[in-house]
């Protein structure tokens, strides 16, 4: 069985994003970019399933600029077998990403597609669910535990009230949550080896998908800033403050 793992190149999670003064967006010039953290978890999960003998081949795919090659090389260095870059400098919204992934899935026929639950730049939390809908396949979002069998996958999901377990017929779509696993670091020898692994480059036009955005962003602004208050000396002072505010 093949696993398809979509990975997105995003601002590194340690960087504090800066809004451009003209309101046109967030300043990404000279900012450290990395693989979306949830996608690292997806790659890791696919590798573990391969190590367990349940997956034969892992294909990483990214939609984005030429530099997203770096993100794909990271996936390859972690343990993916080959990669596909669908190259474009345009903004590609989750719906269009899902349509492109659907085309890749039609070609590759993976039994499992593992996405991140959320990209930490657009915070959309949509692509996996959209892909599942377009393919008319079942979805296991916010996965905490994944158990793969030959024709089904059982997913324990992180939900607002606790955990929920669902069983899905394959092919199925999964989105990863933080507790699913702890992603490995690529070792230096594996980073070297990854340079020789196959990486195909395509364009959205190759798949015949119209990626024109449906949403227009008219402005991007800073959120209201919160001023630091004051520090109190001791617990008594804290209690007095809380009482004054009617909290205690």
């Amino acid at each position: 069985m093949k696993a398809l793992v979509p990975v997105k190149r995003v601002i590194d999670y340690n960087v504090k994003p800066r809004v451009k003064s003209d309101g046109s967006g967030v300043d990404l010039a000279n900012v450290k970019m990395s693989m979306n953290p949830f996608d690292e978890i997806s790659v890791e999960e696919a590798i573990r399933l391969k190590e367990a003998g349940k997956i034969e081949e892992i294909i990483a795919v990214s939609v984005g600029p030429a530099k997203a090659q770096e993100t794909l090389r990271t996936a390859l260095a972690m343990g993916a077998d080959r990669a596909i870059l669908i190259e474009t400098d345009e903004t590609v919204e989750p719906l269009a990403v899902a349509k492109l992934l659907q085309k890749v899935a039609e070609e590759e026929q993976p039994g499992l597609i593992i996405l991140g639950k959320q990209a930490i730049d657009d915070d959309a939390n949509q692509t996996g669910q959209m892909l599942a809908a377009l393919m008319d396949r079942p979805q296991g979002t916010f996965a905490n535990t994944v158990e793969l069998d030959s024709d089904s996958v059982t997913v324990k999901r992180e939900i607002d009230g606790g955990l929920e377990t669902v069983k899905l017929q394959l092919p199925a779509i999964i989105t990863t949550d933080l507790r699913l696993n702890e992603p490995r670091y690529a070792s230096l020898p594996n980073i070297m080896k990854a340079k020789k692994k196959p990486l195909d480059t395509k364009t959205p036009a190759d798949y015949g998908v119209n990626i024109a955005p449906r949403l227009t962003t008219t402005n991007v602004s800073e959120p209201p800033v919160r001023q630091a208050g004051e520090k109190v000396e001791d617990v008594d002072a804290l209690v007095t403050k809380l009482k004054a505010l009617g909290i205690a």
Partner: peptide, 15 residues
Amino acid sequence: PIYAGNAIATVQSGD
């Protein structure tokens, strides 16, 4: 909110 609420986007749908 986008970018963990570090930016607020105004978006208009064309759908």
